[in-house]
Design a protein around this nucleic acid. Structure first.
Length: 579
RNA sequence: GCCGACGUAGCUCAGCGGCAGAGCAAGGGACUCAUAAGCCCUUGGCCGGAGGUUCGAUUCCUCCCGUCGGCACCA
């Protein structure tokens, strides 16, 4: 067992996509954006780095106002209700944020308005008039996708104003034949309205230069997407809307307009960091992750974990905003995941799912968080869309998590109880096989670390499972249940060696499976929390009395799974998104 | 239509210039500490299609097909 090399702790900012508070999040969101950063952050904390993991609920925007209208609530009431539920799901999933907040806090409003004012003063914002669709009955402006009509290209009658679902063409709502509002059905009018625009073309050259350098280790899909936009040439983008729900514009005479969601949501990474510092009474503490030094170098690495739908905001717009504001660190990596599909179909936040319901509140009620985290990580959509099905979930749970890892732990700890009274035996001379097993532990620590550092989390978890497999093979070969009758010292040495592997698995699995790792930590009669341990092998000393263990994971049999899923009632989630 | 990523064993996915890989499923075997779990062996692939570059291509290039995503007021 080697000591971890001493090194200077790095400051790692872990930004997590801001869930939209329009309704519950589903397993696809968890797989894409929420579980991965938690694993990454937990690993870096154990590796001795200074981690700041921030996110919050994105409370503004049109869909929330639409959903609130339908439910007879205010937008604030609806957003706060959904935020509470999302935060509860995240807690049950074991997501360990340093600060999980919302975009409704005074700090967020202040920081957003400061960003707006600074960019305006520096000449990166301008005001211009545009034509927009207006619903005279609802008395509100309509985003493009809230207008529907007949597609001018293919004649499809239910085309949305932004895109035709039938022929796939990008549309302008003004071109729709017989347009109608998706909210009221009324015929929309066109109206002139004035808005502020972020002048992205000013950042074209600096962004291109930054991407050339920064993207060396980015995922191909992310780099490809960003280069695509840059090659087309960036266009200015409106950052305000005719709404009464959002961060107010910090200028006189704009009471009927608000800063729009996507602009203030990304600023949330900064405002949540500042809020974290304020809460702990060290108002400047956030700067250790954000402020560039005199030479313009970042203080550490900033990672933004998102789904692929969010790439333009995190790899183009937010970097441009940070450049414009000045003095703040740009992203180091934007490890965007692809999507999780359900039985081969794209998941939607608003669609109704009956007996297959994959929303987080229901999933967490029926299954252990670690079982869900295991599936979502071992089959994570890191380089392409991956599929979720309850059959596959059951299979991965039973044949991999339970059979390989859970069983390795349970067979050993049970045998220790029955034949050694639960006391860790004293080893004799180590055999070559014993030494190979111990060497495998060291290898696992370095390999899993290397994978996680590269944000290859599924490979990282695979590495943990590989060690469990090694342990199973080692045990079968050492067969202490045989040698205990013929050579007790040999059996004791095998037991001690195997227990060291269990002790390692408890540490190695902690970022991925935080609940079962803590349980196992208890079964090893260790002190404190497994999550406070350093990322290195931890010796389980001979002579320690261990408690009677229970299996770490539940096996899901067919009848039980079917019964659980049958209990789910169809649930309609009103998110305010146009369908 | 244009741009991008992806297409590898029955399934879920690695590999990305030098004899095609893993897990699961399927078939066989030895064992019994364990949630009938684990271990060993075997079966199984024109690496989407067609050209090209190369001594050599699953890997690099071109075209085609398919899936997904983007095309800027969805976030």
């Amino acid at each position: 067992m080697t000591d971890a090399p001493d090194r200077t702790p790095e400051h790692i900012l872990v930004g997590v996509a801001w869930p939209y508070a329009s309704g519950p999040r589903h397993l696809g969101h968890a797989a894409g954006a929420y579980v991965p950063p938690d694993i990454f952050a937990r690993y870096h904390r154990m590796a001795g780095n200074k981690v700041l993991m921030v996110s919050g609920s994105d409370m503004h925007g049109t869909p929330i106002t639409v959903a609130a209208d339908k439910r007879g609530m205010t937008a604030r009431e609806l957003a706060e209700e959904n935020h509470a539920n999302i935060a509860d799901s995240f807690r049950r999933l074991g997501l360990n944020y340093d600060n999980y907040t919302t975009t409704l806090t005074p700090t967020h409003y202040r920081v957003t308005q400061d960003f707006f004012t600074t960019l305006l003063e520096k000449g990166y914002l301008f005001e211009a008039t545009q034509t927009a669709m207006y619903d005279p009955q609802a008395k509100r402006f309509l985003p493009d996708r809230y207008v529907e009509g007949t597609c001018p290209h293919c004649g499809y009658e239910d085309a949305r104003g932004d895109q035709c679902d039938n022929c796939g063409r990008t549309l302008d709502p003004i071109d729709l034949l017989t347009p109608r509002s998706k909210i009221t059905g009324a015929t929309p009018e066109t109206r002139e309205t004035s808005h502020f625009f972020l002048d992205l073309p000013q950042f074209q050259e600096p962004l291109a230069a930054w991407v050339d350098e920064a993207s060396v280790n980015w995922r191909p899909a992310v780099t490809g997407f960003v280069r695509g936009w840059l090659n087309e040439g960036l266009r200015a983008r409106a950052i305000t809307r005719d709404l009464d729900w959002g961060v107010p514009i910090p200028l006189e005479g704009y009471d009927d307009k608000r800063i729009y969601v996507w602009f203030d949501a990304v600023i949330g990474y900064l405002s949540a960091s500042i809020e974290w510092a304020e809460k702990r009474g060290e108002p400047d503490a956030w700067k250790a992750w954000w402020s560039l030094d005199g030479q313009g170098n970042p203080p550490g690495r900033a990672y933004y974990f998102i789904g692929k739908d969010n790439v333009p905001f995190h790899a183009i717009i937010w970097p441009a905003m940070l450049m414009g504001y000045g003095g703040l660190a740009l992203p180091y990596d934007v490890p965007a995941n692809e999507f999780l599909t359900l039985d081969g179909l794209k998941l939607s936040s608003s669609r109704m799912y009956t007996a297959r319901l994959p929303f987080l509140p229901e999933a967490l009620e029926l299954f252990d968080a670690d079982a869900l985290r295991f599936f979502l990580t071992i089959n994570a959509p890191e380089s392409r869309d991956t599929d979720f099905s309850w059959d596959e979930f059951q299979r991965r749970n039973n044949d991999e998590l339970v059979a390989t890892y859970g069983n390795a732990v349970h067979r050993l700890l049970s045998f220790l109880q029955s034949r050694y009274g639960g006391v860790v035996p004293t080893p004799g001379d180590l055999s070559e096989a014993d030494r190979a097993m111990l060497a495998q532990i060291d290898t696992a620590f370095s390999e899993v670390a290397a994978k996680v550092e590269k944000v290859h989390l599924r490979d990282g978890l695979r590495g943990v499972m590989d060690l469990a497999s090694h342990l199973n093979r080692y045990l079968d070969e050492a067969a202490p249940w045989k040698s205990i009758k013929t050579d007790p010292e040999r059996a004791a040495t095998s037991m001690w060696t195997a227990l060291q592997a269990i002790s390692a698995l408890r540490v190695l699995s902690a970022p991925f499976l935080p609940f079962s790792a803590e349980t196992l930590h208890g079964y090893l009669a260790d002190e404190g929390s497994v999550h406070a341990l350093p990322w290195e092998p931890r010796e389980l000393p001979a002579g320690r009395q261990l408690p009677v263990p229970a299996p770490l994971f539940r096996k899901l049999d067919d009848d039980e799974l079917a019964g659980l899923l049958d209990r789910l009632k169809p649930i309609v989630v009103e998110t305010g998104e146009p369908t």
